[in-house]
């Protein structure tokens, strides 16, 4: 007997969001089916990988994470260029580590200068990731939104504590916001409602569900994203119909299992290949759950993930 795949009845669709401007602008979202379920729907825009760039020289990176970048790590502009020119980055996430009040705590203007320089140096979309300190980000990201006028950048993480400050400037300068909530469907929805009430255009919102790395809470992010997608696509929950970004690189690369060498723990195998796979497996898992953008570090992990996206969207 001929067998038909039981189809899910989708009633909703993820909104399309454009990042950047001009020829290298990228559109994400737009799917009307579960991730890679193309036998029953469309994914007009394939999921993308964004390369992370730090605004200050990372001090605690593994040798094998430093390797692909070498001396550009102390120069965010050269670093971003290298990602685009050498590794074919389609978008850059600039992580504003130097602004963290629990770290270097650089002043807003000093940090914004670097953001502007990086924005000027690349033609691919720029996403600017703050410190996750509500107060500091409130100041910092609103200035970023202003300073990057006309570039259609994304700024975040935007929380329920600072959405007014950042949201207002994002509206004013027509930037995208990355709405961040702590691994919870209802809180994600609530923040999106607040942003809507504030007047943020629905084509200008991306969800950050808060990302746990492999072995460190990945399953929580995974299931929250599946629930987000289920609500958005099958329960007509308009306030969850936004693309999702997962800032996974810092989560994966700070773990013990990406730091231990083979000499320290022979059973864990070659440290470089293991770390690359820990990053790639985290990304793959989140893509299956519904990520539209995965933020990654190592060019080899990126290649593996792009290859898989290509096969799944073939």
């Amino acid at each position: 007997m001929a067998f038909e795949i039981p189809k899910i009845k989708y009633t909703g669709k993820i909104r399309e969001v454009q990042l950047g401007t001009g020829a290298k602008a990228v559109r994400i979202g737009g799917a009307n089916c579960y991730p890679f379920h193309r036998f029953e729907g469309d994914m007009p825009n394939v999921p993308r990988v964004a390369f992370e760039v730090w605004d200050s020289s990372p001090e605690e990176w593994q040798q094998w994470a430093i390797e692909p970048y070498g001396d550009v790590l102390s120069d965010p502009v050269a670093w971003a260029r290298k990602c685009v020119d050498t590794y074919g980055a389609e978008m850059i996430v600039l992580q504003l580590r130097s602004a963290d009040p629990n770290g270097e705590n650089k002043g807003v203007e000093e940090v914004v200068e670097v953001v502007k320089k990086v924005a000027d140096a690349i033609d691919v979309p720029l996403l600017v990731w703050g410190t996750a300190n509500d107060e500091k980000d409130g100041e910092l990201l609103r200035r970023v939104a202003e300073a990057c006028e006309g570039r259609n950048v994304a700024v975040g993480p935007v929380s329920d504590k600072n959405y007014k400050q950042i949201g207002a400037m994002a509206i004013g300068y027509s930037q995208v916001v990355m709405a961040s909530s702590p691994i919870d469907v209802n809180l994600a929805k609530q923040l999106n409602i607040l942003l809507g009430n504030l007047g943020v255009n629905e084509e200008k919102v991306v969800i950050d569900p808060t990302t746990g790395g492999l072995g460190y809470g990945l399953e929580y992010t995974y299931s929250v994203m599946e629930r987000d997608r289920m609500a958005a696509l099958t329960q007509e929950d308009a306030k969850l119909q936004f693309p999702i970004i997962c800032n996974l690189a810092p989560e994966v690369w700070k773990t013990r299992e990406t730091r231990l060498t083979k000499d320290e723990d022979p059973k864990l195998g070659d440290e470089k290949r293991r770390s690359i796979l820990m990053e790639a497996v985290t990304a793959m898992t989140l893509l299956v759950a519904g990520a539209d953008i995965v933020v990654m570090r190592h060019p080899d992990s990126v290649s593996l993930v792009r290859d898989m996206i290509g096969e799944l969207c073939a």
Binding site: E257, P266, K267, L268, G269, R274, L277
Partner: peptide
Amino acid sequence: TGETLFPL
């Protein structure tokens, strides 16, 4: 191998 198996 450790490096391919452990992440999985």
